[in-house]
Amino acid sequence: MATGGRRGAAAAPLLVAVAALLLGAAGHLYPGEVCPGMDIRNNLTRLHELENCSVIEGHLQILLMFKTRPEDFRDLSFPKLIMITDYLLLFRVYGLESLKDLFPNLTVIRGSRLFFNYALVIFEMVHLKELGLYNLMNITRGSVRIEKNNELCYLATIDWSRILDSVEDNYIVLNKDDNEECGDICPGTAKGKTNCPATVINGQFVERCWTHSHCQKVCPTICKSHGCTAEGLCCHSECLGNCSQPDDPTKCVACRNFYLDGRCVETCPPPYYHFQDWRCVNFSFCQDLHHKCKNSRRQGCHQYVIHNNKCIPECPSGYTMNSSNLLCTPCLGPCPKVCHLLEGEKTIDSVTSAQELRGCTVINGSLIINIRGGNNLAAELEANLGLIEEISGYLKIRRSYALVSLSFFRKLRLIRGETLEIGNYSFYALDNQNLRQLWDWSKHNLTITQGKLFFHYNPKLCLSEIHKMEEVSGTKGRQERNDIALKTNGDQASCENELLKFSYIRTSFDKI
């Protein structure tokens, strides 16, 4: 039985969820670079991206490699990797027998973001014989899940209580170790020597080791999670996991709180800001991140802002960003909400898709409305799209047979046209069989910064309504002859009103 693990408890099935942008060198404390989270699957090609990484700022997932063999891993080693800020997950990587050479110096898994409450997941690794993470000293947050690894031993010899604050939620089941077939031998045991430290858990006094050649490092209890030197002297209180010299914040392997210019500090002093819960960055760093993602459509890219001495992905609820200094300031009234469309555009074809934009005031991208039916549609669209004030790209209304009016965009005031449909149009209306009105132009103002209007096959939309939009939106004169079809717009509506004058002759039985 794995020490510190839980057996036999019912657990939810383990679901495996399925960018080499360097964020800056980590400095003297770390020998390499800070790398983003990685999802490495199918083959070993991307694994080489770990070569210079000291910190993975995010998670590391290595999974679904069915053609790899043990010899493929023999020359692979990433000794610079010290810390993973989120979680480490391995799933069905064939041929991998140990992690001792792959990650010989991995010391800390912070667990800032977890995989279903777990910071370390080893699942269905069919050839893994031992973990071998002999320098792993601290899992700051989260638990361990090690399950269905039929060859995995050296679990009962690990004292997880020396690595985690609590072992109650560890789930370590259905491994070879369960069948008591392992016969784990710690260093020196074969020669009758006791080389590794022994600890007591559940009444068992057991030597602690990761492999037959690597003991588990056990520091004096007084050192807590700070770690200790090879001689057993406690590291500085700002260290986490390990250090090369005692009581020196510049000799830590990793930091308990924050890293700044080669030393570990309790908090980031001005003019620095907390970033990702582990390091200090200056304003320029946060500003660069903001600008890199301002026009990016890459998933996970955030326009970072500053709030409460932190550089964070977005302002919290009730705050909006001051564009001059990136500071989050309290909103006066309802907060603006910028919604970034991942692929640059979004099609609204149902109430469900409209709900995804609920509360958005600025759309960074283009909207395509293609709704053919739905219950209580006008009210639903207004509830979900009615706060949109600005669209950076274009607005396209296409084959939306259920629409009679666009009044559900009740606050839309600006279409920038930074991206144009077919390279020309910022407003595009095609084949809307029941569209009769755009907006009530006596109450609604709309500016279209650039781009043209396109109207074709809107049989109940009168040309007068379209011409009014040209005047109000500032697009009059931009359109070419064929942009607004004269014969297919309003051709099934009563669009022309003329005053009919009647004269009559009164007659009676005795007068003409």
Rank of each mutant, 00 (worst) to 15 (best):
315 C>V: 01
166 S>H: 04
130 E>W: 05
261 D>C: 05
191 K>F: 11
298 R>H: 08
38 M>Y: 10
234 C>W: 00
153 C>A: 01
180 E>V: 05
88 L>P: 00
127 H>R: 06
122 I>V: 08
211 T>L: 03
181 E>T: 02
184 D>I: 05
70 P>Y: 03
186 C>P: 01
237 S>L: 06
128 L>N: 00
286 C>R: 00
72 D>K: 03
28 H>W: 08
336 P>H: 12
162 R>E: 09
308 N>H: 15
178 D>S: 05
176 K>Y: 15
260 L>T: 15
332 L>W: 10
179 N>P: 03
67 K>Y: 07
109 I>W: 00
43 N>A: 13
204 Q>W: 07
132 G>E: 00
140 T>L: 08
262 G>R: 07
275 F>H: 08
212 H>F: 06
256 R>M: 14
159 D>E: 07
318 G>R: 05
335 C>T: 04
111 G>D: 00
116 F>P: 01
179 N>Q: 08
155 L>V: 13
315 C>R: 01
262 G>I: 09
304 Y>I: 12
136 L>G: 01
36 P>Y: 13
142 G>D: 02
96 L>R: 00
69 R>S: 04
89 L>T: 05
169 D>F: 14
121 V>P: 01
165 D>P: 05
228 C>L: 01
198 A>C: 07
28 H>S: 09
248 D>A: 06
48 H>Q: 14
199 T>Q: 07
286 C>M: 01
190 A>N: 09
208 R>V: 00
320 T>V: 07
146 I>V: 15
92 R>S: 06
284 S>E: 08
139 I>R: 00
155 L>T: 07
277 D>C: 10
38 M>Q: 15
221 T>E: 15
128 L>R: 01
282 N>L: 06
43 N>T: 06
98 S>H: 02
296 S>G: 14
262 G>L: 06
70 P>E: 05
331 C>W: 15
235 C>N: 01
308 N>V: 11
274 H>G: 12
191 K>M: 13
279 R>N: 04
301 C>L: 10
255 C>S: 00
255 C>I: 00
314 E>Q: 04
210 W>L: 03
94 Y>A: 11
308 N>T: 06
71 E>Q: 09
304 Y>F: 14
300 G>C: 09
271 P>V: 05
156 A>P: 02
162 R>L: 05
308 N>W: 10
152 L>Y: 00
154 Y>H: 05
59 H>F: 09
29 L>N: 13
268 C>L: 01
280 C>H: 01
236 H>G: 10
99 L>H: 01
144 V>E: 00
146 I>T: 01
82 I>M: 10
64 L>K: 04
55 V>N: 07
200 V>S: 15
89 L>M: 15
261 D>H: 10
259 Y>H: 13
150 N>H: 06
89 L>I: 15
116 F>I: 01
269 P>H: 12
170 N>A: 07
317 S>T: 12
35 C>W: 00
107 T>V: 11
234 C>H: 00
49 E>H: 05
109 I>P: 00
247 D>E: 10
265 V>M: 10
287 Q>T: 10
218 V>W: 10
155 L>G: 02
85 T>G: 06
297 R>S: 08
174 L>W: 14
58 G>C: 01
276 Q>S: 11
245 Q>G: 15
162 R>H: 10
284 S>G: 05
210 W>C: 01
303 Q>M: 12
232 G>D: 05
275 F>E: 02
235 C>L: 02
233 L>M: 04
229 T>P: 11
218 V>Q: 05
186 C>T: 01
81 L>D: 01
333 G>W: 13
42 N>K: 02
126 V>A: 14
236 H>M: 03
210 W>Q: 02
143 S>M: 08
40 I>S: 15
57 E>Q: 14
82 I>G: 08
205 F>Q: 06
276 Q>M: 10
261 D>F: 06
283 F>H: 05
67 K>N: 08
332 L>Q: 14
174 L>H: 06
270 P>W: 13
228 C>G: 03
234 C>T: 01
298 R>Q: 03
229 T>K: 10
256 R>I: 09
156 A>F: 15
149 N>A: 01
272 Y>L: 08
90 L>M: 13
177 D>C: 04
35 C>D: 00
132 G>S: 05
211 T>V: 06
156 A>H: 05
222 I>L: 11
66 F>W: 05
121 V>Q: 01
261 D>N: 09
315 C>W: 00
248 D>V: 06
257 N>H: 05
255 C>N: 01
201 I>M: 09
264 C>V: 00
68 T>A: 03
116 F>W: 08
313 P>T: 15
264 C>F: 00
280 C>V: 00
228 C>S: 02
117 N>Q: 09
83 M>V: 05
215 C>W: 02
52 N>T: 04
242 N>C: 13
225 S>M: 08
211 T>Q: 01
145 R>P: 00
146 I>Y: 02
309 N>P: 05
325 N>R: 11
28 H>G: 01
275 F>N: 08
163 I>Y: 01
201 I>G: 03
176 K>T: 05
65 M>G: 02
171 Y>G: 05
303 Q>L: 07
165 D>H: 05
251 K>A: 01
303 Q>K: 04
28 H>T: 10
238 E>Y: 07
37 G>S: 08
317 S>F: 14
267 T>I: 15
263 R>L: 12
199 T>G: 05
52 N>G: 04
53 C>P: 00
121 V>L: 02
268 C>V: 00
298 R>C: 08
108 V>L: 10
107 T>S: 09
183 G>M: 10
89 L>P: 00
239 C>M: 00
328 C>P: 00
248 D>G: 07
44 L>I: 10
261 D>V: 06
37 G>F: 06
173 V>P: 04
93 V>L: 15
97 E>Q: 10
53 C>N: 00
38 M>K: 11
191 K>S: 13
167 V>D: 05
296 S>A: 13
296 S>R: 14
292 K>S: 09
225 S>G: 06
307 H>I: 06
99 L>Q: 00
227 G>T: 03
267 T>S: 08
134 Y>K: 01
147 E>I: 15
193 K>S: 04
136 L>Y: 00
297 R>G: 12
131 L>A: 08
300 G>P: 11
114 L>S: 03
311 C>V: 08
178 D>R: 05
100 K>S: 09
130 E>A: 14
82 I>D: 15
84 I>H: 00
228 C>D: 03
214 H>D: 07
57 E>V: 07
335 C>S: 04
260 L>I: 13
185 I>R: 07
252 C>T: 04
321 M>Q: 14
180 E>K: 10
58 G>N: 00
56 I>R: 15
271 P>M: 08
251 K>S: 05
201 I>H: 04
206 V>S: 03
31 P>F: 08
168 E>I: 08
247 D>V: 06
86 D>Q: 08
215 C>V: 04
